[in-house]
Write a protein that binds this DNA or RNA. Structure first.
Length: 522
DNA sequence: ATCCCTTTGAAGATG
DNA sequence: CATCTTCAAAGGGAT
């Protein structure tokens, strides 16, 4: 899928921050045929899943708890209740998707339920507005018909680079957009105190900062610093009244660390770095400015939580991630712009600050992760996965695609089979599509060690290139993104994004972070 | 009490 | 230069 990259740079004068704000665009792919094909294939193969997942039924309990959530995540389209941001999203009167409800794709969509339709099997969404039901933006490719995973909820990560010419698309705020812009000013988001307004002195990193007197929300940029852009720039990064620690006291960990300064144990463990730690401890912890997605998350989280009954952040974030992808370019552009301004403000406030300064802030945790061997991590994840999905049997993987990892369809079917949520895929059949198999093969062929991990395969030169060649469009508009499609580690890790080749459900591979190895369910 | 999970994006670190 | 890693938020769940 052509990933057009266009980045940023706030236009002409360029991004003062040299930020790489970019709006990515999902280009429509005409793989409706494949989709259909895969769907058909899917139907044809429904017959064995239950059998070989039998064991899971009993152990499916752990999963059931989150089943609804996952189910909710699955359908990508068919959303009726547009999420809040959907107000911008116009132009989807006719869904570009070939298969949504009633479409070529056999899978029922959440939409049906909302529309009062039979929902074909009725996947009752836990989260009505859910994320996925929303009609995907025109710029998006055909979304995976299925996504489930709780962890896997990997959605095709198709970058959207809508603005040709690489000019940064400053959103011309339409009325709808204005609404959103207004929403940015929600108290929860930018609870800036009046006192903060007008405050502009750059906070010298060396100066002590106090968070005590600030509300927990008052931790980010002052709106006024936004240059009166009226974009609702973030909450107070207001230089807090003097004190010493973390101006971002709202952060649980920050608070913890702040209260304890740096625990004795931590200091001890840090050993050699003790001096540095002390030095660092003296400095207030200045958090990174939020990126576009973070801003979006912050704004939308409450809504999603309200719409859904779940509160688990991980699940919520998955939903938000999908919604993010479903946003129109204009909508995303606003957040990119906002993020850019946040960075700008941050830069103004903390001229000498560098993201590097925060490296090691959570060192304890990170270090532990790092220290852990791959095997250990893998084992741990495997354990978790088993506990989570009840996959404690050998050879429980998607037969067609041979994926031992979390096969979205497989897991969803599994959940349906073992849980209370009726799901069309709850039929004994292989959950994966031909596309999945193809991808998997490519992946396997190119991977060196653990053949069945998309991540690994993608990481390997061959795998990556192979996948990229399949998916990557060659058309990466200038300016070149920081991580051109196919080269971005994340993209590489995400078979789907890497390709839309399938626009199929392919579990988003775990990130390459130490603690995020792909979970193996074999 | 602490860490994990989960998301995307920005940016530093590394090879 | 390409890739990898860390950190931003958040809060329930796991350890």
């Amino acid at each position: 899928m052509p990933h057009a990259h266009s980045s940023s740079a706030a236009s002409s004068g360029g991004d003062d921050l040299g930020s790489t704000d970019e709006v990515k665009v999902f280009k429509d792919e005409g793989d409706g045929e494949d989709e259909k094909r895969s769907s058909e294939n899917l139907l044809e193969e429904k017959s064995s899943l239950i059998d070989w997942t039998e064991s899971e039924e009993k152990s499916g309990e752990p999963y059931s708890g989150k089943l609804s959530v996952k189910s909710d995540l699955s359908p990508v389209f068919g959303k009726f209740e547009p999420h809040p941001a959907a107000s911008f999203n116009m132009g989807y009167l006719v869904t570009p998707y070939p298969y949504p409800n009633g479409g070529a794709h056999p899978l029922p969509v959440s939409m049906t339920s909302k529309m009062g339709l039979p929902a074909g099997g009725g996947l009752s969404l836990f989260c009505p507005g859910g994320d996925l039901g929303q009609p995907p933006p025109a710029h998006m490719g055909i979304p995976p018909p299925y996504q489930l995973d709780s962890k896997l909820a990997g959605l095709a990560r198709t970058p959207m680079y809508p603005f040709p010419g690489g000019t940064y698309p400053y959103p011309m705020l339409s009325p709808e957009m204005s609404q959103v812009a207004a929403s940015w000013h929600t108290p929860s988001m930018y609870p800036i105190s009046s006192a903060a307004s007008g405050f502009r002195s750059p906070y010298p990193t060396s100066l002590p900062i106090s968070s005590s007197s600030l509300s927990s929300e008052l931790y980010r940029f002052s709106p006024t610093l936004g240059g009166g852009l009226g974009l609702g720039l973030s909450p107070a990064l207001v230089p807090a009244p003097p004190s010493k620690v973390d101006i971002f006291s709202h952060h649980p960990r920050s608070q913890v660390e702040k209260s304890s300064g740096s625990s004795a144990s931590e200091k001890q463990s840090e050993g050699t770095a003790s001096a540095n730690n002390k030095e660092q401890n003296k400095k207030p912890h200045i958090k990174k400015p939020l990126n576009a997605f973070m801003l979006y998350m912050k704004e939308m989280r409450a809504k999603v939580v309200a719409e859904c009954t779940l509160k688990e952040s991980a699940a919520i974030n998955q939903i938000l991630g999908r919604r993010w992808h479903s946003l129109s370019r204009e909508e995303q552009a606003k957040y990119y712009e906002k993020a850019r301004q946040e960075r700008q403000l941050h830069m103004q406030l903390y001229p000498g600050w560098s993201a590097r300064d925060n490296y090691g802030y959570g060192s304890k945790k990170k270090k532990r992760k790092k220290d852990r061997g791959p095997a250990e991590l893998g084992g741990n994840n495997l354990k978790k996965c088993r506990a989570r999905y009840g996959l404690d049997q050998q050879n429980q993987w998607c037969k067609p695609c041979r994926r031992k990892k979390k096969c979205v369809r497989y897991l969803e079917a599994l959940a349906a089979a073992s849980g209370s949520v009726p799901h069309p895929m709850a039929t004994p059949q292989s959950p994966c599509s031909e596309e999945d198999v193809k991808l998997e093969e490519l992946s396997d062929a190119s991977s060196d060690g653990e053949a069945d991990t998309p991540l690994n395969s993608a990481s390997s030169p061959g795998g990556l290139s192979a996948l990229s060649s399949l998916a990557s469009p060659a058309s990466d508009p200038p300016p070149a993104p920081r991580h051109p499609v196919g080269t971005n580690p994340r993209d590489a890790n995400n078979p789907l994004s890497v390709g839309q080749l399938t626009s199929q459900s392919w579990p988003r591979a775990a990130q390459t972070r130490p603690g995020h190895e792909v979970i193996s369910v074999s």
